[in-house]
């Protein structure tokens, strides 16, 4: 009698514990929250830097490795191709919305640049989509981005 009660109690306990668990995929995927936060951050940055103008996706490519072992120095390449109607690229702004200082750099090009392509190395404080916004001489704004996962983050880990 007692053993049956104990077993029954355990079984009921297991069922009770299992109830609140959502589907496995749902519980694991918390990136919905982070994606929203990142998107909100990026929109705020656009409002700050471009007076509310929304860039159009295209013509700007951001090259990053898919995974960064160490966020302290990640190779970044940004390139902007001219859209129809524009004679040259004026500037490219690089944003990492989840970094403590999200505006990474602004690159300005002179008339004799020849190609609006810049390579540098940046710091990453979290997994995110790094975005580049190109500004053309006809006033147009276009953008591109690349997602990166960072194993060891920079900025927030203190070194020995």
């Amino acid at each position: 009698m007692k053993r049956r009660q104990v077993l029954g109690g355990m079984g009921a306990g297991v069922l009770v514990c299992l109830q609140p668990l959502p589907a496995w995929g749902q519980a694991w995927d918390q990136s919905g929250e982070r994606l929203k936060e990142e998107q909100a951050q990026f929109e705020q940055l656009l409002a700050q830097h471009f007076e509310g103008r929304i860039p159009v996706e295209g013509n700007v490519s951001v090259n990053l490795p898919a995974l960064a072992e160490n966020g302290n120095s990640v190779a970044l390449e940004v390139q902007a191709d001219l859209p129809v109607g524009a004679a040259r690229v004026v500037s490219i702004d690089v944003f990492a919305p989840m970094n403590p200082a999200p505006h990474i750099a602004q690159f300005l090009f002179g008339a004799g640049t020849g190609r609006a392509q810049v390579r540098t190395r940046m710091r990453l404080a979290a997994d995110q989509t790094v975005r580049a916004v190109a500004s053309f001489d006809n006033g147009r704004l276009m953008m591109g981005g690349a997602h990166i996962v960072v194993t060891e983050v920079a900025c927030l880990d203190f070194l020995i």
Binding site: P65, L67, A68, E69, N70, S73, V74, A75
Partner: peptide, 17 residues
């Protein structure tokens, strides 16, 4: 044992810090 990015940086005769 390093990532491809790190290996490329070491083998870069200019950009290796």
């Amino acid at each position: 044992y390093q990532s491809a990015d790190t290996q490329a940086l070491q083998n870069d005769n200019f950009a290796n810090p």
